[in-house]
Amino acid sequence: MAETTHPSGTGAHGAPGGDDGTSRRDFLYLATGAVGAVGVAAAAWPFIDSMNPAADTLALASIEVDLAPVAEGQSITVTWRGKPVFVRHRTAKEIDEAKKVNLSELRDPAPDDKRVQKPEWLILVGVCTHLGCVPLGQKPTDPRGDYDGWFCPCHGSHYDTAGRIRKGPAPANLVVPQYAFLSDNRIRLG
């Protein structure tokens, strides 16, 4: 009987026990506990969510980039949402290398034309998909890795001329950000 499980329960102020050994009091305990747990979870959410990006962070304006000064074979780095964005004016040879690759060799298969809007302009978030370092390969003096693209010095990831991962610990290709061509040599990021 339920009474025996409550130290003070003599039955005088306890709820009458059901035939299956449960009482109204057991039910009330459970219901109170459940409501309490939901309440705590609901109260915890504002605390947790306050740590997510705030409205001003989310609203970080999109930026426009002028491509005119970037000569063929050159790269520039711009900052967008606190991250470097690589803009490379690819040479015919680089485009050719990117197109020739057999997709089945790739860790994260993607054809070159899915990664560019115009073949000569490759635009990438310059953050290694391994643990977030900025790969080398933007400056003419930088090592570009075994595939003529970028090389991440942190743990040795090699990216090709379409920013695809070819060798090393990174699991995925460099991310292509959202962008649109405003004119022939002007883009908007974001």
Binding site: I48, M51, N52, P53, A54, T57, L60, R81, G82, K83, V127, H130, L131, G132, C133, C154
Partner: peptide
């Protein structure tokens, strides 16, 4: 900070939201 917080991005599905939550933004800032 960048490398260590990015460790959490290794977890499938929840990884990236966790990293954004840890950062409170889109990079360490």
């Amino acid at each position: 900070a960048t490398v260590i917080t990015n460790l959490f991005s290794a977890f499938p599905i929840v990884g990236d939201p966790i990293v954004t939550w840890l950062w409170g933004g889109f990079s360490v800032d």
